[in-house]
Amino acid sequence: MLYIKCPHCGMRPQIEFSYGGDASVKRPELNKEISDQEWDDFVYNRKSLRGKHLELWQHISGCRQWIKVERDTATHEIFKTFKADEEVA
C-alpha cells in the first residue's frame, strides 16, 4: 500500500485516496473546434508509461482535494506531490 503525501494533510495511506489518471492531459477548451483525433487523444488515448508519471489522485477520504503525484509506475517511488494549482517543475 502506497504512502502518499497529501500537500494539504501530510502523509496518508493509499486507502484514503482514489486514482484519477494522467495529470498531464489537458481538457480542450470549451466551444473550440477540434479534430476527432484531438478529442480521442483527450478522452481515450493514454501512454502507459514505465517510469516517472505525473498523475492525479483525489484525497477522497480526507480533504477531498485533487492533487498531483509524481510517481514511478514501475517502482511506485513517489518523487513529489503537488497541489492542484501548483506548477510542476
Binding site: 482514489s18 484519477g20 481538457r27 492525479l56 483525489q58 477522497i60 477531498r64 482535494q65 485533487w66 492542484a84 494549482d85
Partner: peptide, 13 residues
C-alpha cells in the same frame, strides 16, 4: 461529487 470537484479543482479552477 468527485466529478464536480474534479472540474472545479483541475479543469476550471
Amino acid at each position: 461529487l468527485s466529478h464536480l470537484e474534479y472540474y472545479l479543482q483541475i479543469v476550471w479552477p
